[in-house]
């Protein structure tokens, strides 16, 4: 169902994301100077699902915004799909989803999903085909004509994911996309997201402050600490085989949660930071 020719014309050796000693300082020279990130290195390979987890102020959202080129690093380099982050943004090489679905109130669900395609200059027919494809993908095939505010929070977030993936970008950047959902919906959405990513072969960088969420979703969990924001640990998560609702009951799952929690504690000891959910 995907037009793979469109996804990447890149050589396979390219990393999906490559962050090289990137630092980010806000209010440089001012009295409220904040070192949000200090010499961070991160490599994400195509097809990987990588979570960034850490206490508030550890710079995980900032790191995501550096990859998205919504911010420029004070020093260091960010490359996406073998290009500069700026070029990748211009090429719409990634889709983005936020904690608030950020759907436009005045557009129908279908029109919301269309937005990135519209901006890319696709014609109407092509857009319509892709929109129904995306609605199918997020399992809301009949909701295209609805207004966003007629949907539940979980449905809105699915539409936001559909919008982020509408132009079939090879990379999906997500900033606590399920943070505002209730626990049941949240777990359901996590499973859906894994299916969607498997179906579309999308690389994901996922910011969260929930340990189980990070472990359940990720191939790798990147643990960060605050003051200044640094990567303190990287934990590979191999739960063996496909992940489903059973996975949440596995011993291996719990062991990984404990491992991530301890890694976070280690960084917390150093900084005294808070803001991690244990649930």
């Amino acid at each position: 169902m995907t037009e793979t020719s469109e996804q990447t014309g890149q050589a396979p050796v390219d990393h999906a994301v490559e962050v090289v000693t990137a630092s980010m300082v806000f209010n440089e020279g001012g009295s409220a100077r904040v070192a949000a990130l200090d010499a961070v290195d991160l490599v994400v390979e195509p097809g990987d699902f990588v979570s960034l987890i850490g206490p508030s102020g550890c710079g995980k959202s900032t790191l995501l915004r550096l990859i998205a080129n919504l911010l420029d690093p004070t020093s260091g380099e960010v490359r996406v799909n073998g290009k500069s982050a700026a070029q990748a943004r211009l090429d719409q090489d990634y889709g983005m989803a936020f904690q608030k679905s950020g759907l436009f109130d005045w557009r129908t669900v279908a029109k919301n999903i269309e937005l990135p395609l519209e901006l890319k200059g696709w014609d109407k027919r092509r857009r319509a085909v892709r929109v129904s494809e995306m609605l199918e993908l997020v399992k809301l095939p009949d909701r295209g004509a609805n207004m966003p505010w007629e949907l539940s929070g979980g449905q809105q977030q699915r539409i936001a994911i559909a919008r982020a993936l509408a132009s079939h970008p090879p990379l999906l950047l997500m900033d606590e996309p399920f943070g505002a959902l209730d626990e049941m919906t949240r777990e359901h959405m996590q499973s859906e997201l894994l299916q969607i990513c498997a179906a579309t072969d999308t690389t994901v960088v996922f910011v969260t402050h929930s340990i189980p969420e990070a472990v359940y979703l990720s191939d790798r969990v990147v643990v960060m600490s605050a003051g200044p924001g640094r990567i303190t640990d990287t934990i590979d998560v191999d739960l063996g085989g496909a992940r489903d609702e059973e996975t949440r009951e596995d011993d291996a799952f719990y062991k990984k949660i404990t491992e991530v929690r301890e890694a976070l504690r280690g960084s917390e000891m150093a900084t005294g930071a808070r803001g991690i959910e244990d649930r």
């Binding site: 943004r89 983005m96 904690q99 950020g102 901006l119």
Partner: peptide, 26 residues
């Protein structure tokens, strides 16, 4: 909302496009 502006930014939409598609309707 800041997230909506970031979204338009992520599409590399220019100021005028952002005005027409986002700022004006909101």
């Amino acid at each position: 909302p800041k997230a909506s502006l970031e979204l338009m930014d992520s599409y590399a939409a220019g100021w005028w496009t952002t005005l027409v598609k986002l700022r004006f309707p909101s």
